[in-house]
């Protein structure tokens, strides 16, 4: 039987560009350059490797996001995923993590899965909670923040480098996993891959397709609210000295003045 892998990928504003908030205090996704979250490239990479090592596997990439989020799916398809699912609905604007996990869970169930692979965190929200929320919603084990992962005999195993210890984890499929940027370099799409991606199927789903009411998601359906977002005042320009033999002394002087020494 085929191993069905679903990779959750997010389309995010480019971190090296100018990120900001829209008037309704949601992340502005209209006027900015977006891309497949770099941390989700690692998830795609590990999913492809797991598929390559399986007898028979299919990799579906899934995103919840606006029209432009198709770019993220295209990138993942050109890396080698087989097909894509795009959940897009105007009512999704402003959905928080709990709401997004509902949409992803329903979409994953509709697609059918043995293994869900996520990135360690999105580069815009950086919450790192979606995989745990998905596991809770789907009622399947979570094996998250893995820097090494393998799937064999209906089980996923992997290494989690925690704060206090390194743990070796094991869970039976179906399961939700997330992988870190330590899991291994993500491949670049080849020219052939980019051409092939154009012909791969992208299924579009809206909230109706997933039996989700509009008031369960979006800004109104969110269980959290941002009341204020202020640009951090620029740091006041510091003192910069050129070391001409006295740099260390000058720095020590500064540190002493600040009571660090």
């Amino acid at each position: 039987m085929s191993l069905r892998i679903v990779v959750c990928v997010k389309y995010v504003p480019d971190a090296t560009g100018d990120r900001h908030f829209a008037d309704d205090l949601t992340v502005d996704r209209e006027d900015v350059d977006g891309l497949l979250s770099e941390l989700d490239e690692y998830a795609v990479e590990q999913a492809l490797q797991i598929a390559e090592n399986a007898d028979d596997a299919e990799v579906t990439v899934l995103t919840v996001g606006p029209e432009d989020a198709k770019d993220a799916l295209r990138k993942a398809l050109s890396m080698g995923a087989d097909k894509a699912v795009h959940v897009e609905d105007d009512d999704l604007h402003g959905t928080d993590a709990i709401g997004t996990s509902l949409v992803l869970a329903k979409a994953v169930e509709k697609t059918g899965y043995d293994l869900v692979v996520c990135g360690m965190a999105s580069t815009d929200g950086t919450m790192g909670v979606l995989p745990a929320l998905l596991s809770e919603r789907l009622g399947v084990p979570q094996a998250t923040l893995l820097s090494e992962i393998s799937v064999e005999d209906g089980k996923v195993t992997g290494r989690r480098d925690g704060d206090a210890a390194t743990e070796q984890l094991q869970a039976a499929l179906p399961a939700v996993v997330s992988v870190t940027d330590q899991s291994g370099e993500a491949r670049y799409p080849s020219f052939k891959g980019i051409m092939a991606a154009k012909k791969k199927p992208v299924q579009s789903l809206d909230l109706d397709d997933l039996d989700i009411d509009a008031d369960e998601v979006g800004l109104e359906g969110s269980w959290t609210k941002v009341d204020d977002a202020a640009e951090r005042p620029a740091r006041t320009a510091g003192t910069i000295v050129k070391d001409e033999g006295e740099g260390a002394k000058q720095l020590a002087e500064f540190l002493a003045g600040q009571k660090f020494i």
Partner: peptide, 28 residues
């Protein structure tokens, strides 16, 4: 990184860091 600093030293860390370490030890 210099856009962020309160104090910056433009210099070779292999020169500055050991001297700074000595300076701190002396002061302490």
């Amino acid at each position: 990184i210099f856009d962020l600093v309160d104090y910056g030293v433009v210099g070779d860390l292999f020169e500055v860091l050991p001297k700074l370490t000595e300076e701190i030890k002396a002061r302490k």
